[in-house]
Computed example of a mutant assay.
Amino acid sequence: MSEPPLKPVLQKPPGYKDPNAPAVKPGFRPPPRKPVLPPSFHPRKRRSGCCRVCCCCFCIFFLILILLLLICGAVFYLWFDPKLPGFHVQSFRISRFNVTKKSDGTYLDAQTTTRVEVKNPNSKMTYYYGNTEVDVSVGEGGDETELGTTTVHGFTTGKQNTTSLKVETKVSNKLVDDGVGTRLQARYRSKSLRVNMEARTKIGLGVAGLKIGMVGVTVKCDGIALKRLDGGDMPKCVINMLKWLNIH
Rank of each mutant, 00 (worst) to 15 (best):
G130T: 11
G158P: 02
S172D: 12
G142D: 12
G154S: 09
K174A: 15
F155E: 14
K174V: 06
E140H: 14
E146F: 05
K170N: 08
V136Y: 00
G158A: 11
K124P: 04
R189Q: 06
N122S: 10
G154A: 10
T162A: 12
V176Y: 04
V134L: 04
L147Q: 06
K191L: 10
R187I: 00
H153Q: 13
V195Q: 09
G158H: 06
L175E: 03
T156L: 06
L165E: 05
D178C: 04
E168V: 15
P121L: 14
G181K: 04
E144T: 11
N161W: 00
T163Y: 07
K170G: 01
T126E: 11
R189S: 05
V195K: 07
Q160L: 11
L165S: 08
S172Q: 14
D143T: 13
R189A: 03
D135S: 15
V152H: 05
Q160V: 10
Y128T: 14
R183T: 08
Y127M: 14
N131V: 14
G179Y: 10
S137L: 01
L175I: 03
T157M: 09
V171L: 03
L147P: 08
G154N: 11
N196A: 03
S192D: 15
Y128V: 09
V134D: 02
Y128G: 15
T182V: 11
T157H: 04
A186I: 03
T162K: 15
N161G: 02
N122R: 09
V134T: 01
M125P: 02
L184F: 07
G148P: 02
V138H: 02
T145S: 08
K191E: 14
K174N: 07
N173W: 01
D135V: 09
N122T: 10
M125C: 03
G148V: 03
Q185D: 09
D178A: 15
D177R: 02
L175S: 11
G148K: 00
